[in-house]
Simulated scan of single mutants.
Amino acid sequence: MRRPFVKPLVYGLIGLGVIGFAFTLITDPAVLLRQAGYIFLFIILFYLVYRFILRPSQTKGQDRGYVRAVKQSKLRQKEKERGSNKVDMHTYRSSNKRPVSKSTKPLKKKKNNSHLTVIEGKKGKKKNRAFF
């Protein structure tokens, strides 16, 4: 029963916000710019606190594992480059292919299941979904 009450309330708050924004824009645009600057500074401050204080304590082990995986990947790449100079694997693989036999088996056709029937149900009835 709450949903019918919440929707008009949200629209009302958005409408009041638009009216307040327009009023501030007309009467004193400098205050509007100052408020936008405060919001921008708050977002930057929040990001820096998250980046340098909260995040490093959570992901120290993950960063070490990532650095180790990168080193292992680079070592494997170097080993592949050294090995590829000795023998070209692509030409080796292409020369050892088996000849394709001309007598191939025909593909089986899919059987029709005549014992299965379609049961028609209530197609027109849809679920009553009430989303916000």
Rank of each mutant, 00 (worst) to 15 (best):
L32W: 06
A36P: 00
L54T: 04
F21A: 08
I39A: 06
R82Y: 13
F23H: 13
L48P: 03
L48S: 05
T59E: 12
I44Q: 03
I44L: 02
K80T: 14
T24Q: 14
R34M: 13
A22V: 08
Y47D: 06
R55I: 04
G37M: 05
K74I: 13
R51Y: 05
V10Y: 14
Q58I: 08
I39C: 03
I44V: 03
L41V: 00
L54F: 03
G12R: 12
Q35T: 02
I43P: 00
Q72M: 05
K80D: 15
K7E: 15
L48K: 01
Q62W: 05
S84E: 15
I43S: 03
G12A: 13
P8L: 11
V31I: 10
G12P: 08
G15W: 11
Y38Q: 09
Q72L: 07
V6E: 15
G20P: 04
G37V: 00
I43A: 03
I14Y: 09
V31W: 12
V18L: 12
A22M: 08
Q35K: 01
P29G: 06
L75Q: 13
F40A: 03
G12S: 14
P56A: 04
A30K: 06
G20M: 12
G65L: 04
L9M: 14
I26N: 12
G83P: 08
Y50H: 06
V10D: 15
K60W: 09
Q72K: 08
Y66C: 01
K74L: 11
V18F: 09
F42E: 08
I19A: 13
F52S: 01
K7N: 14
L48W: 01
K78P: 10
D28G: 02
F46D: 05
L41Y: 02
V49E: 06
R64L: 04
R55V: 06
I19V: 12
V31L: 11
Q58Y: 06
K71N: 14
Q35W: 05
K80S: 14
A22W: 09
Y66T: 10
L9C: 14
V31Y: 13
Y66G: 00
I14G: 09
A69L: 07
D63Q: 07
R51C: 01
I43L: 04
G12K: 11
V49T: 04
V67L: 08
L54G: 01
Y38N: 09
I43M: 00
T59K: 06
L32N: 06
G12W: 13
R76W: 10
I44A: 04
L16Q: 12
R34W: 11
K78F: 11
V10H: 15
I43V: 00
G20I: 08
V18K: 11
P8V: 10
Q35A: 07
V67M: 09
L41I: 00
L25S: 12
D63M: 03
L9N: 14
K74R: 12
Y38S: 05
Q72E: 14
I26S: 11
L45D: 07
P56S: 03
A36G: 01
I53M: 05
V10I: 15
R76Y: 12
P8Q: 14
F21C: 07
A22T: 07
T27K: 13
G37D: 12
K71C: 09
T24H: 09
Q77R: 07
E81C: 01
F23N: 11
S57L: 04
A30F: 10
D63T: 07
L54P: 01
A69M: 07
T59W: 02
F42I: 00
Y11L: 15
I39R: 02
R68A: 10
I53Q: 04
R51G: 03
D63C: 01
L45H: 01
K74A: 12
I44G: 02
